[in-house]
Write a protein that binds this DNA or RNA. Structure first.
Lengths: 346, 346
DNA sequence: CTGAAAGCGCTAACAG
DNA sequence: CTGTTAGCGCTTTCAG
């Protein structure tokens, strides 16, 4: 393999079709103003030669790259233990592919990489960026924002209280949490506890807020801090049981946490949902269906989140080109609805 | 943000440094043959202007893109439930970054995407490809191979019995399995069972082979088929216990499977390792440390695998440029060693 | 509606 | 050792 056969150029196609390069270019780019018979001849030549436009040459003149950077700023641990990120990525990939954009993946591990990313972005190698910033104190998002590249964030960035021009897509964590707790309340539960997620992430904070929306003036002892893991859920559940043996429901910040809670409840001989009702968050499949009992939980559409991030960014780019407006002019946050999925645990 | 300030060109740097474009180009590309004082002046100009080379322009003339495609052909399920892939990606990313190459991620979901990937590759937008083909019958690898793009595979591809020019990096699954089982044998266990992984993946097949290397002429009833999941491990363990109540050791195809086995053994009142010794595979952390008891397992260096894949590819590309040789000329498979990590379960 | 020509920013001979 | 020059393949005015 590989003696790298030189690929056909516009020139070649033009020659074959008996037209000029300009005409071929027009046809290839779907510009109108070419008579059908000619266009057809060109298309045929393209097919016969297997012509594929040279992106570099095109970029050079258009100053667009049709490439989007996806930046993941995580010390590995969470992002990847986490099937969510994968789904989101898939959603992003789908959308970018549909619009013929490349997905350039940038993984960072710490401050050392920040400079590199900033440089890369400033280098103008991509048309825009999609950024996952899971932690409240992550400095990267600010840097990126300053690099002047159109950007959409995944999840509400913690560092900007809705600052100008910060565009993000997120699930309705607060609303979902509220619904979950109200569901518990509607079941007649009067002592609803909450195990939080890692509170350095906005999603955890928002879910806690949602919990508080639903149980105003709740007993503060009914809230225990978790960290989105099974182990964290177990720990918190033990705490809660000790502090408030009379609790009759638990809203866990995610399904893993709920699974931990479930296990501890069983250990303590509490029956779910009879004695204690449990609701999770995420609807992480197949996991959520396989707990014992199957988990009632709040579903978020992760794939769609990714897709939407990409779509919003791409749309913003088009606008930029046409009107010299920026993505910043868009509505800041897009919040996707969640739905409560009832199973056996509550 | 964004009124897109035109970025400085070589020309600009040249003007500022009072030299020609060629000289700047030389300095920027680290070519030698520029006197130090001049070079220094150029570097300074570069800094002051914040010059970053325009990749498109460079590609156009060099016909290199400094971009590598990472192709993941998986229906999502496994790849991402799986922290491995993430680590490998990280390893790849590190290596590519170190050599200033872009990581272009291509996710595929089925036949529909194959054509797209093939077209993309044939389009010559990347210099090489890194491919994860986990299933024996995946047609994608062949397609890719045919696209004529230098490629390195992650994991032994099932479809090619060491066919010419197929370069891959893999862990020593067979050797690791053999070591694990020998360890069990060395502990004096005489009835060693094996729970396989999903046998449509070469890693599972290789581990099974390793098992058989160690226990020649073993009782076939001591092998049960799993699927790399906890649930699969539970199921298989139950089967084994029923078929061979006298077993005194289990080698599980991975840590998740081992965890499932552990749980079932406990259910059945078998003590680990006293009654039954258990060894896993992967050393998936922190998981493997947190089972009860902590798992003795075979460690593979996943990050290094990724890194090596990238390194081999990149090295091959250099060679291609210099000698018109291809990656295909390399030794076909690179196998990374595994190490047995002793914990409490065996 | 189509073609000719200029030029995007860079590298790589080739001269000097 | 440094500068001059000629494109790489494409889009895009501008004429015709």
């Amino acid at each position: 393999m590989t003696e790298t056969v030189p690929r056909p150029t516009l020139e070649a196609v033009a020659a074959r079709a008996g037209v000029s390069r300009a005409t071929v270019s027009r046809v290839v780019n779907g510009a109108d103003g070419v008579t059908e018979p000619l266009a057809e001849r060109v298309r045929q030549a393209v097919d016969e030669l297997g012509y594929v436009p040279n992106r570099a040459a095109r970029s050079l003149v258009t100053n667009r790259h049709d490439a989007i950077a996806v930046i993941v700023a995580e010390p590995e641990s969470r992002v990847f233990a986490d099937p969510f990120f994968a789904r989101q990525l898939r959603g992003i990939s789908k959308e970018l592919t549909a619009h013929d954009n490349q997905l350039v993946l940038l993984l960072t591990e710490g401050r050392a990489d920040h400079a590199r990313v900033a440089r890369y972005l400033a280098g103008g190698h991509v048309d825009g960026a999609l950024v996952f910033s899971l932690h409240l104190d992550d400095p990267l998002p600010e840097l990126i924002q300053r690099a002047g590249v159109p950007t959409v964030f995944g999840g509400r960035p913690g560092w900007s209280g809705g600052r100008d021009g910060v565009v993000y897509v997120d699930s309705d964590n607060r609303g979902g949490a509220r619904d979950a707790v109200r569901h518990l309340l509607g079941l007649g539960r009067g002592r609803v506890a909450h195990i939080t997620g890692a509170l350095d992430q906005t999603s955890a904070v928002d879910r806690l807020d949602g919990f508080r929306d639903a149980v105003v003036d709740g007993d503060p002892r009914l809230v225990a801090e978790g960290d989105f893991t099974v182990a964290g859920g177990e720990r918190a559940m033990r705490e809660l049981l000790e502090r408030c043996p009379d609790l009759d429901a638990v809203f866990a910040a995610n399904d893993l946490t709920a699974a931990g809670a479930l296990r501890v409840l069983r250990e303590h001989g509490r029956r779910v949902p009879d004695d204690v009702a449990v609701v999770g968050f995420d609807d992480m499949l197949p996991f959520a269906e396989q707990t014992d009992p199957p988990l009632t939980t709040v579903r978020q559409d992760i794939l769609e989140m990714g897709r939407l991030m990409a779509r919003i960014l791409l749309r913003g780019l088009d606008r930029t080109v046409r009107t010299h407006d920026t993505v910043g002019g868009d509505p800041a946050g897009v919040i996707l609805p969640t739905t409560l999925v009832r199973r056996a645990s509550a």
